[in-house]
Simulated assay, not measured.
Amino acid sequence: MVKLRVEGMTCNHCVMAVKKALQRVPGVEKAEVSLERAEALVEGQADLEALLRAVEEEGYRAALAG
């Protein structure tokens, strides 16, 4: 599982946009996005760079959460 910090989400529409973007990345089995925690949990074998790029293409900032 990969945990991403996602910055810039302000509403549930943002959450759905990020979730859909992550689900389109090859190798993603499941994606859960939390507005309150400003994070996304992604299950599967997706490439990290592809995940980050998918979020950024939606207009948000993403980084691997430590």
Rank of each mutant, 00 (worst) to 15 (best):
24 R>W: 03
24 R>G: 01
25 V>E: 11
26 P>K: 13
26 P>R: 14
26 P>A: 05
26 P>M: 04
27 G>C: 08
27 G>P: 01
27 G>E: 06
27 G>N: 09
28 V>P: 00
28 V>Y: 12
29 E>G: 05
29 E>K: 15
30 K>Y: 14
31 A>R: 08
32 E>P: 00
33 V>S: 05
33 V>L: 11
33 V>R: 10
34 S>E: 11
34 S>K: 15
34 S>Y: 13
35 L>D: 09
35 L>W: 13
36 E>P: 00
36 E>A: 15
36 E>M: 09
37 R>G: 00
37 R>L: 08
38 A>Y: 15
38 A>N: 15
38 A>V: 01
38 A>M: 15
39 E>K: 14
39 E>C: 11
40 A>F: 05
41 L>G: 01
41 L>D: 01
42 V>H: 04
42 V>P: 00
43 E>Q: 13
44 G>Q: 07
44 G>F: 06
44 G>M: 07
44 G>K: 12
47 D>K: 14
47 D>L: 08
47 D>R: 13
48 L>I: 13
48 L>A: 02
48 L>E: 05
49 E>W: 02
49 E>C: 01
49 E>Q: 11
50 A>R: 08
50 A>K: 12
51 L>V: 02
51 L>A: 05
51 L>T: 02
52 L>I: 07
52 L>H: 08
53 R>V: 02
53 R>W: 06
